[in-house]
Amino acid sequence: MLENFGVFRYPDRMEHQLEVIAGLRERYENVVVEDKGAVFNTDLTQAIELGYMLDLAWCMVQAGLAREESRGAHSRPSDFPERDDERFLRHSITRWTDDGPELSSEEVRMTRWQPEVRTY
């Protein structure tokens, strides 16, 4: 994720990251917890956290690929360098299903501040 899904995101790298995640998820099926103890078992907590992180990583890359624009810390300098309020002034909402993450979007409730171009 650090290499392929940082602030600057490129379509080929994001696609590749999806494969990486799929591979890791397959390996995670066989995860081993070496520490069998009941006291302060960080081996176990780390294994559990890893599973959630793999879920979250999939959600993030899916939403990142779908967001064909550049906004804040999601920057696509090679294919969509501009912000696109018309299509993407929306929250990305992901629901977990048996087949993986299901992406949808919701309207943003605008209050005082309008989106602006960063000029500094």
Binding site: V33, E34, D35, G37, V39, F40, N41, T42, D43
Partner: peptide, 9 residues
């Protein structure tokens, strides 16, 4: 912890 002994806390 990663390579030698996962039980280290």
């Amino acid at each position: 912890k990663d390579q030698l002994d996962g039980t280290l806390a």
